[in-house]
């Protein structure tokens, strides 16, 4: 538990509770304190990873590829502390909300693309320091493998594996084991289950091997 928070993410008090926070326009009705807005770790798996002190390798200001940005709850905080942030999301409805998030964040680039087909956005996305992966689809290991091409040499993959997206009937432990064995070209640095904040989710920190 030696994880340090990236620059731009702090623990601050909101209503007498200490919570993670970043500086930026509020997005989902979270409490604010001046420029700072609370990061709801119940709604954000990356937030939960940072809160638990996982060593994510994030230091602030990095270039990020975010796969599965959804309505932008988490990616809004990422764009607050990171540099250029490319947000890929395939479903049209949440992208509408994501665009509102991007309106006040000039470093956030919204791409309505399928994370399983990186060729469709490799002409836009530059090599990145960090890939955050939070996709609700089968074949999550394949998504990570396909997108490895975007990672710089000492980059990090921060993936959250949803057991129920792979197979609702299987034991989550088995699903996580399969994910580990299917991950290619990565060295896993750390894993942690996010229960009870996020049931049946495994957080994975990995770096590409060359």
């Amino acid at each position: 538990m030696t994880g340090t928070l990236p620059t731009g993410v702090e623990r601050r008090r909101f209503d007498s509770n200490e919570r993670l926070a970043t500086r930026g326009q509020p997005v989902y009705g979270e409490p604010t304190d001046g420029d700072w807005r609370a990061w709801d770790i119940r709604r954000s798996k990356l937030g939960a990873m940072l809160d638990r002190g996982m060593e994510t390798g994030l230091s602030g200001d990095e270039t990020v590829l975010y796969l599965g940005a959804a309505a932008g709850t988490t990616v809004s905080h990422v764009a607050d502390f990171a540099g250029p942030t490319y947000a890929v999301e395939f479903a049209a409805r949440p992208v509408r909300d994501l665009l509102t998030v991007a309106d006040s964040r000039p470093n956030l680039f919204v791409l309505l693309k399928d994370a399983r087909k990186p060729e469709a956005y490799a002409h836009v996305v530059e090599p990145v320091d960090v890939i955050v992966q939070d996709v609700a689809t089968r074949g999550q290991a394949r998504v990570a493998n396909e997108n490895r091409r975007f990672l710089k040499q000492n980059g990090r993959l921060l993936a959250v594996v949803k057991a129920r997206s792979e197979d609702v009937t299987a034991d989550p432990t088995d699903v996580f084991e399969t994910f580990r064995s299917q991950l290619e070209g990565y060295e896993i640095l750390d894993t942690e289950r996010l229960d009870p904040l996020h049931d049946d989710h495994l957080a994975v920190v990995a770096r590409p091997t060359w």
Partner: peptide, 19 residues
């Protein structure tokens, strides 16, 4: 990055509407 932000936002907005 300014140009990229404007273009990606405009594209996504149109795609969402069409979809």
């Amino acid at each position: 990055y300014e140009v990229l932000h404007d273009v990606t936002t405009a594209v996504a907005r149109t795609q969402v509407r069409e979809r």
